[in-house]
Nucleic acid binder design. Structure first.
Lengths: 285, 285
DNA sequence: TCGGATTACGTGCACCGTAATGATC
DNA sequence: GATCATTACGGTGCACGTAATCCGA
């Protein structure tokens, strides 16, 4: 068998052209390289070099050998990286969600049920989440439509209903309910990390005028200080009741402004996540 | 970098299941293996084993590592074999011919012009020879039709004409010339290693009755001793004139019973075989 | 008590570096 | 004389083996 260090030295020589240059590059002495190259020839049993008195160069055999060497060196490096990556993926549970709210309820359960695991979470739209799940990058996902794929198992995990908090000064605040299309042309303050809600509003409101805010705290301050209409949901309302006194909270009447969430994983991991699924089911019974 | 010997030991352990079994298999001591496995874990920086007090086994990481190890070991073995094979092929000139006669003229030239090279020759039909040339297994080939392929260079190298040596007792022996179709139904003695000639005769003679003989010497004896008609060519006639006294030698009149031979090589090797081609050209001027 | 893993310790060899030599420009 | 390959020689790290220990069936 040819040890890796020999292939490294061969590759170095091929790259540098002379033993002395390669020796420097590899932090070795010239003699060490001379010997290694001899040894390679001995192991393979074939001449790899043309030797002039003062010049060593690869012959056809040697060039082929260097080519193979590069391949093996690459794979030898990859083995380390791949296993590290595999180990990392074994230690992390990656979860993607179409909205931030259901994450907040489920992540604590994961933390509790799978101690020691790193949890990697993000919000994105359904199609991209599904794609990443198919590619095996995700362990869990939360969608707002029941997944149909045979290779997936899922469980309902609550829902969310959209409201708009309208300043009392706005004429629309007198309505008992509003359709998204009624919000045509008015400026609305929007927190940017709200997942699929953004797409929904953008599509259903004619000529939407959103004031996007990336930072959650700033968003909260703005919502409090300004007199702009703000989207909210039953989840947020149950947490911040006291702040809604200056605004009238009006439900959005559109059918798809009331959603159910579904937690799903690939069938292969059904067993692994059974405890989680059971817990979620109990929470929503 | 992970040295090959570590991968070998990992693979051995995976195959044998216990350190002690693997140690025996690999002609090593248990402690040596223990240390190597520890070292592997250290290099990769990831746990590869589950350690019970009295039992060591691969975990998921380790199984993956063993899989990679096998791949690299395979390639590391192959590098030696491949280079040896490549070196061999560099030292041999492989030539295929559609008939034995032109080989006899060309091979001596090759021997003389390319001293030290092993010459590997064989007779087969044109299509198979062309195929092997395309696959890069051949350096030279002799066909009886001018090659059309752009990637080939060629030179005419003589020709051959078919005769039949007919016993004087046979009524056909009175003809000045014969067509192959005239030989319908009569038994003819045939040497098996005559390349394309066999196919030609088989196709042009209705209901052919060939007595095949594999061994050249036996064939010669049979031809001499029996009173069977025998195929021959101008080449053989010029060598064995004295033996033809008991038979009448009659030329075959079919157009394709007179052939021209072409020596060809791939264009990449044009330069290499230029001396040979020139010599052949001179011989047939 | 045996089989298997690990630890402790000593050893040899294989690979390395330094120095010297040979060769070419 | 500068650069490069090779040979000679001495050193050392590291992978190995032996022996001892621990642990579980």
């Amino acid at each position: 068998m040819i040890e890796i260090y020999l292939l490294e030295q061969l590759e170095g020589f091929d790259r540098c052209g002379t033993l002395s240059a390669a020796a420097e590059e590899l932090h070795l002495s010239q003699p060490a390289l001379t010997r290694s190259m001899k040894k390679l020839e001995e192991i393979i049993g074939v001449e790899l070099f043309t030797r002039q008195k003062n010049r060593l160069s690869l012959n056809e055999n040697g060039k082929l050998a260097a080519e193979y060497a590069r391949r093996i060196l690459k794979e030898d490096k990859e083995i380390v990286e791949r296993i590290r990556a595999f180990d990392r993926s074994r230690r992390t549970i990656s979860i993607g969600s179409c909205a931030p709210v259901p994450l907040e309820k489920i992540v604590p359960s994961i933390t509790m049920l799978y101690p020691g695991m790193t949890i990697s979470q993000f919000v994105d739209d359904d199609t991209r989440i599904l794609k990443r799940m198919e590619e095996g990058e995700l362990n869990l996902m939360i969608l707002h439509e029941e997944p149909k794929d045979d290779g997936l198992v899922h469980v309902p995990c609550g829902g969310e209903k959209l409201y708009i908090a309208m300043p009392k000064t706005n004429p629309l605040s007198r309505h008992e309910g509003l359709w998204l299309k009624d919000l045509e042309g008015i400026s609305i303050l929007l927190f940017s990390q709200i997942g699929f809600w953004y797409e929904l509003c953008r599509q259903k409101i004619p000529h939407p005028r959103f004031l996007m805010q990336d930072d959650f705290n700033t968003f909260g301050e703005l919502a409090y200080a300004s007199s702009l209409p703000v989207f909210t949901t039953d989840h947020w309302l149950s947490m911040n009741e006291e702040r809604s006194n200056e605004r009238i909270v009006i439900p959005i009447l559109d059918e798809d402004a009331t959603v159910s969430y579904y937690l799903a994983c690939r069938s292969e991991e059904k067993k692994r996540f059974q405890p989680l699924f059971r817990r979620i089911e109990e929470q929503h019974r």
